[in-house]
Simulated scan of single mutants.
Amino acid sequence: MSTEPAVRGLDRRAAEQAGRLAVALRTAAPALLGYALVRAVGVGALALWGARRGTSGMGRLSSLWDAYWYQAIAVHGYAGTVPRPGPYGPYEPYAFFPAYPALISAVHRVLPLPPNQAALLVAWAAALAAAWGIYAVGAHLYGHRIGVITAVLWGVTPYAVVESAAYSEQLFTAFAAWSVYAALTRRWVWAGIWCLAAGLTRPTGIALAAALCTAALWEVVRRREGLRAALGALIAPLGFVGFLAWVGTVKGRWDGYFRVQDAWHSHFDLGRSTFYSLRDLFTRADQVWLTDVVVAAVLACSVVLLVVSALQRQPLVLVLFSAAMLVLALGDAAYFNSRARFLLPAFGLLLPVANGLGRLRSRSSLALLLASAALMSAAYGGFVAFVYPDAP
């Protein structure tokens, strides 16, 4: 029996899918170009900061604290990466999830790039994929204009410098955005698969999995999706749970991952550490760092934006994801200045701001506001990277 009809059918489907992808890319092009432009401003400002200090801004992007661990794991693996001493115990590579180091390793092996450049290439590609996903969610809910604005806003947040660094937030945000988009378009199995990938990228994958599972099971209860939603809910937490199970096996105890995190003093304390940090910010008479003020402002604004998101009746999966990310950021006992970075993937919190900006009739006014935000974000990013480098 001839296989030519089957082959022609596969070629036709592949061509159709490529055509749809090309159309989607052209539609999202303004968002991607706008995002790339504002991040180019941030990277350019970082280069200027570095030049004034006789160092490389690009080198700084690939050498911030967590970047070392991702690159070491990519080159040496978990077992071959040497722990480092810390105040609460040895820092170990098992605190870091495997998706980002695995991609760095793949790019490093395929392309003639050193690990630090491979790490930046993966991070920047992931940031564009995240901006595309954010645009897709915003455009699906509120239209093309709001989608573009939301993607650009993600590039001018106070801690947007992290989006250009060798960190895993960009990859996690990309997986999260496309998982949410898949759920919104009722592709529940794909939503679960993207969520599984997010769970292999960062510990906050549990927030996405909780949001997606709750939304999927709600659809099952309403009998609107049935099997597909239930299957997506089953797939969603497998990445996060699988990595924790693997670390537990390596460490010989079920809570091995959490004991590794003790060295970073990272655990959920119901917000006690956040409360003490905020209390000290307002009551201590000694020097207050700008980063403390900015992080406090980001947390306060995030709470307000979450309430507005709920009042605007954002879809359940999006509100739950934003809420879960905010709970983790407020409830973690790790460094106070890391909390704004933890909230970078909570892109749903930007939608109320994007909706407000979308009501501006003057394009020049909108462009001026976004350009001003880009310059402020760039200046603060340089401060974070060079003046207060432990902030991320």
Rank of each mutant, 00 (worst) to 15 (best):
V384Y: 09
R20I: 01
I146E: 01
F386H: 11
D269S: 05
G331K: 08
A329G: 10
I193H: 00
L330F: 13
A47S: 13
C195S: 14
W178L: 09
Q314Y: 04
T185K: 11
F96D: 03
L61G: 10
W289L: 15
Y380P: 05
S365F: 04
R13C: 06
H140T: 13
V319M: 08
A136I: 01
V288L: 14
A209W: 05
F97H: 07
H267V: 05
A151G: 08
A118C: 11
V327N: 01
A131W: 09
T291G: 07
G252R: 13
D332R: 04
A385E: 01
A106D: 03
Y167C: 00
W289Y: 14
A333W: 00
Y68I: 00
A215V: 06
G54R: 06
C195D: 05
L290S: 13
V23F: 06
Y388C: 04
S277Y: 06
V137F: 03
L171Y: 10
I235M: 09
A106L: 15
G34S: 11
G86R: 03
F172D: 01
A165P: 09
R109G: 11
A31P: 02
L184P: 03
Y70Q: 12
Q170I: 03
V250R: 15
P237S: 10
F275C: 00
G199E: 10
H144C: 08
G89M: 01
L244I: 11
A151P: 02
S2D: 15
S105Y: 01
A176L: 03
G9P: 07
V161H: 05
F97V: 08
A29V: 06
A165L: 11
